[in-house]
Design a binder for these strands. Structure first.
Lengths: 182, 182
DNA sequence: CGATCCATGTAAGTTGTTACATGATTCG
DNA sequence: CGAATCATGTAACAACTTACATGGATCG
């Protein structure tokens, strides 16, 4: 899947591995992340498969760049992916939910503290979606890709809803605890 | 993390790798999954680390069982994990969101169809949470672990909220599409 | 009589994480 | 003057997936 994230960004224009990492960190991070090392490895694979080409641009004051370019085959592959329906629901892993599931083994006050901590973390995240990410999309969309902005905004709203849901759920669990005569 | 899921289930009683797979599939599947092969491999590691012990029970009509048992060290390790706060938000990967992000490259009608498909899938999932999972928890909680039922119910409610949120978000995106003069 | 359940395991491959290594430039 | 930015890469390891292999029992 990282493959398609990289091909997707390359449809916006030629980029280095470094640029791609920046893009992932600033826009898809909330639903798709990758380490730098993995990005470079995947790019090599894509080049071996003929989906991208690369050329080195020499620089004096900075490290040389290897700039990647989407080939026709890469464009076809990407297009094929984006137009093929996703047939199932994405599976998620959430370490905190796993911990909640087994928290009968935990002290009640300690558990309550953990809920409050998670609530705080998600509240901070919610601010990020409402402010920084919203701004980022506005700037990026006026600069170039106006068509794409609609879809970026759609994913931003998902993030906003997700964090709101998470916070509401934590409050629900806190209520459950309060209403239990233990 | 799978480590702690396995140790957690073993606090409920001795079990085989097969039993653990069943438990994962029927209760934590929505926020933690694992393949059978990975479970067996992880169990070996846990035994090597002295967190579990195992003994083979011979059976005539069925394959022999290897029954795992939590050691004192395993119990301590698990307890330590469950009582240590989760300091950050779990990162999620969602292939459909990735596709949405890049769907400017896709045909509008095709995209709309994909949204409707995902909505259908999540509606089915919502039914599961409301009916099957709710029943499962009721049965399990009267049978033994009454303390734990509260926490199982908490995670079930997360699943219910999550699917509801997902459906509401899809409706939101559909509205966005309708209100765009393209 | 074919599918599913029970029950374990290996092998090969892919993906993802963490750490290491380099080195000039720019910003606070 | 120390931290961050730019920019690439390798190496080792850990985690996860897919496929293969076995074989009786039971159920529809």
């Amino acid at each position: 899947m990282l493959k398609y994230a990289l091909l997707g960004f390359l449809t916006y224009g030629d980029m280095t591995g470094y640029d791609l990492k920046q893009n992932l960190d600033h826009s898809t991070q909330f639903f798709w992340q990758a380490e730098q090392s993995q990005i470079y490895r995947t790019l090599k694979g894509l080049e071996a498969d003929g989906l991208v080409t690369s050329q080195v641009e020499e620089q004096d004051d900075r490290p040389n760049k290897r700039i990647y370019h989407l080939t026709e085959a890469g464009h076809v592959d990407f297009h094929n992916w984006v137009s093929t329906p996703t047939q199932d629901i994405s599976l998620h892993k959430d370490a905190f939910l796993l911990k909640v599931f087994f928290s009968a083994e935990n002290d009640r006050d300690e558990f309550r503290a953990q809920l409050l901590l998670q609530r705080r973390l998600h509240e901070r995240q919610a601010d990020l979606y409402r402010e920084d990410i919203a701004k980022l999309i506005q700037v990026a969309s006026t600069e170039h890709n106006k068509q794409a902005a609609l879809f970026w905004e759609a994913t931003r709203r998902f993030g906003e809803r997700y964090t709101q849901m998470y916070i509401a759920w934590i409050n629900d669990v806190l209520d459950m605890l309060d209403n239990t005569t233990d």
